[in-house]
């Protein structure tokens, strides 16, 4: 009994899009400009926060939820980290993490225990955090301690990214937690029937999401030099676009993979960078990003539907075959 081996379009397409972006902007802006060391470094620095926060958001999305708080968290966690840094540089990361973890715990609990919708709840938290950013950091931006300026080094960041990737990959792909998380995204009811504590898994997922975003917030604060109330504007949209363009399914599940956010992040960065180099205004850049988001989500969902109905058809065909052999027997 055979099934046709379908070409793995869904896996390949994000890479094709990335290559396409590279080529297009290489042509428009000139490959030498795009691939120059200074440009690559600039792109990496912008992409660093997106990837790190993205590692976190992937957890929330994999279980089928949404976490739109990342932009506001970048400001709030980063700001508090800087304030704490005024007392001692050692407090910087812990202060940020506390904010991120608390935010994630709240969001996770609202969904896991109270069955509230994650999109609406994370939206409410985002608005509240943005307001707090206005309150605390609009007039007097928070400045990180000078002793931490070493973390802004590109090589250091590359090492941090690799270590972080390995750690997160371990949890995501090599522990039961990762399996359960993806399972919840596929079929939450089935996970309950396996005796898994679904609530605990969900809350941890959001804690990871908030925590990793807070971690990125510190690096972001040091890179920019100060945290005011404008930090993080449209950041969560960038992370979300990175996820979906990279091929992470809208509803999460087993097909979510960590590397996809990296591909997607690079795609978004190249897109933004390429447009800026070509002299596009911020308005045009946002317009194109919006269209790319809608197009990629529509297209991947379309492909998923086709694949799903071909699976159903295969089952029907198989049943006909089975019935045929049963009758003949």
């Amino acid at each position: 009994m055979k099934t046709k081996k379908n070409f793995p379009w869904l896996t390949v397409i994000p890479f094709l899009i990335l290559a396409f972006m590279l080529i297009i902007f290489g042509i428009i802006d000139g490959f030498d400009k795009i691939l120059s060391v200074s440009n690559l470094e600039s792109m990496f620095n912008q992409g660093f926060a997106i990837i790190v926060a993205g590692f976190g958001m992937v957890f929330a999305t994999t279980m089928g939820g949404t976490d739109i708080t990342h932009g506001a968290l970048l400001g709030l966690a980063g700001g508090f980290a800087c304030v704490a840094g005024g007392a001692s540089a050692w407090l910087v990361f812990p202060a940020a993490l506390i904010i991120g973890i608390a935010s994630g715990a709240l969001l996770g609990t609202l969904n896991a225990k109270f069955r509230a919708n994650t999109f609406m709840m994370s939206l409410a938290i985002m608005i509240a955090f943005k307001a707090l950013n206005n309150l605390f950091f609009a007039a007097s931006p928070a400045v990180p301690p000078a002793s931490l300026s070493f973390i802004n080094n590109t090589v250091f960041k590359i090492i941090v990214l690799i270590v972080l990737f390995l750690l997160v990959l371990f949890v995501y792909n090599y522990t039961p937690y990762g399996v359960y998380l993806k399972g919840i995204g596929e079929n939450e009811v089935a996970m309950r029937h396996v005796g898994i504590n679904v609530a605990k898994i969900k809350i941890i997922a959001f804690i990871i999401s908030g925590g990793l975003c807070a971690f990125a917030a510190v690096f972001n604060a040091v890179r920019i030099g100060a945290v005011d109330n404008k930090v993080g504007v449209s950041f969560e949209m960038n992370v979300m676009m990175a996820m979906f363009i990279g091929g992470i399914p809208v509803n999460g599940g087993m097909k979510s993979q960590l590397y996809k956010i990296i591909i997607g992040a690079f795609t978004i960065i190249i897109l933004t960078n390429g447009l800026t180099l070509a002299g596009a205004d911020s308005g045009l850049t946002q317009l194109i990003k919006g269209i790319v988001l809608l197009a990629s989500v529509a297209f991947t969902l379309f492909l998923n539907r086709k694949i799903s109905s071909s699976h159903e058809q295969a089952a029907v065909n198989q049943k006909k075959l089975d019935d045929g052999t049963a009758q003949a027997a």
Binding site: S282, G283, L284, Q286, K289, G290, L293, V297
Partner: peptide
């Protein structure tokens, strides 16, 4: 997504 597009049109 559409929100981004509408905003962008205005910004442009």
């Amino acid at each position: 997504g559409c929100g981004l597009i509408f905003e962008a049109i205005m910004v442009m």
